[in-house]
Design a protein around this nucleic acid. Sequence first.
RNA 1: GUGGGUGUAGCUCAAUUGGUUAGAGUGCCGGGUUGUGGCCCCGGAGGCUGAGGGUUCAAGUCCCUUCACUCACCCCA
Length: 420
Amino acid sequence: MEKITVIKGFKDILPEDTPHWRRVESIAREVFDTFGFREIRVPIMEKTELFKRSIGETTDIVEKEMYTFADRDNEYITLRPEATASIIRAYIEHNMSAAEPVTKLFTMGPMFRRERPQKGRFRQFHQINVELFGDDKPQSDVEIILMLIHFLELTGLTGLALEINSLGCRACRPAFSKAVVDYLKGSEKGLCPDCQRRIVTNPLRVFDCKVETCGAIIARAPRILDYLCPGCKEHFDEVKSCLDEQNVKYTVNPKMVRGLDYYVKTAFEVKSGSLGAQNSLAGGGRYDGLVSDLGGPQTPGIGFGVGIERLLSCLPELEKGQYKTDVFIAALGPQAQKIGFKLTCDLRRAGIAAAMDYSGKSLKSQMKRADKLNSSYTLIFGDKEIYEKRLELRNMRTKDQQAIPLDGLLASLIKIIKER
RNA sequence: GUGGGUGUAGCUCAAUUGGUUAGAGUGCCGGGUUGUGGCCCCGGAGGCUGAGGGUUCAAGUCCCUUCACUCACCCCA
């Protein structure tokens, strides 16, 4: 039979790796708890319309990367390419804005984008997402950024670089866009075909282009920061000084535009050198018009996403996940097997990680299995001869062994192991 | 969607300019030794060399096709 393999760009997370996932996830939950965020879990599929309206029709994500299907009733549904849209949908649907002025949420889980896989980029990948609704003050931008940095550092990451920018708002961006378009049209023939197309479709994306000839042209293009309206400028200045007060290092990158249309004002990314080409492990920004665009009340919002795979790949020297066994029962002979099985079950009910080998193979092979399972103690006993009258409890690390009386065996085992 | 690289045992890799039965380490299974596992010794299983076609007396090796993986572009976490 031919074997069936995973879908391209999808990955199994193996037992040797899941401990690191669990660690990162639990650090996230702890940090976010202390910052006052609560966990929300939203579906991994939504109506396609939700993403079209939030992310933007002309973005790469919507144009060519979404997993979109016609459901059996011919409604179009999409595997989520990001989480913000779903969270906002839920925020609106459950009327959270009416219940409290500020709502702080986070979620984590798989996202799906049909790109060509490479280092740090998969078709199914995992993100931790944080969103803050109902506060348009710069302090909330800083709160979010601080929390992100704090979380990343707690996971053990070093050498992080924070980049920030302001993308302006709906008041000031049109003037800037026009200035960019005018400028680009002047040197249109020097641009790559993609950028020429972008002039019409989405001019700001030109800033992301890495083609050298485009870079030279872009370097002299108008800067968004020179076009900010007084409100946006004040907001951005406040964000920067507030970050300074908190001793957070950052660089202003006026060319950072981000690939989702909904961002306004503050945008930020955290990069790491050890990632190869996909060096951005977290990114986010403000999206003040998005809630109303999706049919909710006029509500400011800001949030970020962290790529878990990328985060983990930046962590140094991860140990592989091992079995964790408190006690291994090596039982020799049918009678001993029977007693051993009962003992194993009792120990497990008492919260002790017990294991045994049901095959009844040689002691040597059972001891090998105990070693493989990383057992702290191994209890050896059998039907005959030297094992008849007593049981030996062996400490696998120190090789010490001690006899355990048959009376009250379970109780003394539990005592020894718990006191370890 | 566009380029480059790589496909040999479960894993990591060997195999002269094309040359006989494709090897080693590790892991797995069994045995010996050790007070009863680790160290050591012996043995065993495990391969259509990614797949298909071609050149040749002869292909893991050269050519074509295809698939998979991988890196990069685009874009993003």
